[in-house]
Design a protein around this nucleic acid. Structure first.
Lengths: 157, 157
DNA sequence: GGGAACCCTTAACCTGGATTAAGAAATGCG
DNA sequence: CGCATTTCTTAATCCAGGTTAAGGGTTCCC
């Protein structure tokens, strides 16, 4: 079943019961959590051809928010039986990406993570505000600004 | 196909080609990466009934090491067709755990992560050296020691 | 056009956890 | 047992990134 999501529209809130998973056809979504101190942490960007959803079992309350960074269209699936119909390869890919991300987060500095992000998602960089990139990298917008400043200098000299 | 792995034995090295995934029957394994500076980062502990493996496609070189913390027995599967045979639920569970872990890592302090670990894996705590717990939490053994000291005091007072 | 609401940057200061260095405790093994 | 190796702890110092604060730019509506 197809669905249109306007920019800024929230598809899912943490705490909701939501048995759906979304396959992005066009546009750009994001999933994120909000911690006790009110800070957002982006779990994943979902451009065209990606899956967004919460890995929580369908009966349990979600832990992620999902909303649209750009007006988007998605295919809606049920987590439970339908998801098995979706390409196995996409699930594997998802695991691969998260595995890489976790290792990055544990072993690389903020600068290294930023450069890796630029290399890996050059298209997304253009489409989202800096503060979301910072959030994805696990740092503050101020820290990202500082890093970019340092980088410009290093290149320039 | 069943396999016995002696304590300390390495099942897979980063850089290897390995198309296998392991379902632990008994014992305890771990998967981890080693960064440029030679530091280990534990990706996941795999006690009885868990899957260990690299989410990398079967033709590509692995990024994780896998070895046995305790002498263990595992079932060996091919990543490619056989893995689909394994319970869907176990794959979902795996995604869920990693999703939670990533969010934790981004939003909680080392102390919070440690207490969460104690609550979530009380059995594993007893079975692995502190330095591996530190590695799993994304901190140094020294920092974990400090945290435990602070905790003891707080409880005692 | 002119607020209002974001967004990005810079700079000064602070802090959690890293690093380094030593010992003490536990474990393994000849 | 007794020596070696690994593991854990403590303490001093350091630093990447967080926090706070302030100013300048954009974009969006009314």
């Amino acid at each position: 079943m197809e669905k249109l999501i306007e920019k800024g529209q929230i598809l899912q809130r943490a705490g909701d019961l939501n048995s759906k998973v979304y396959l992005v056809q066009s546009g750009l979504l994001r999933s994120y959590s909000i911690d006790r101190k009110g800070r957002e942490h982006i779990f994943m960007f979902a451009p065209e051809d990606w899956i967004v959803g919460d890995a929580i079992p369908p009966q349990q309350p979600c832990e992620l928010f999902i909303d649209a960074i750009e007006t988007s269209t998605v295919w809606v699936y049920e987590k439970d039986p339908e998801i098995s119909m979706i390409d196995k390869e996409r699930i594997r890919k998802r695991l691969e990406v998260i595995q890489k991300r976790l290792i990055m987060l544990m072993s690389a500095t903020a600068l290294e993570r930023y450069e890796h992000f630029l290399r890996t998602y050059p298209d997304i960089v253009q489409r989202v505000p800096q503060r979301m990139i910072a959030s994805f990298l696990g740092i503050t917008p101020e820290a990202l600004s500082k890093i970019k400043g340092r980088r410009r200098k290093d290149k320039g000299s």
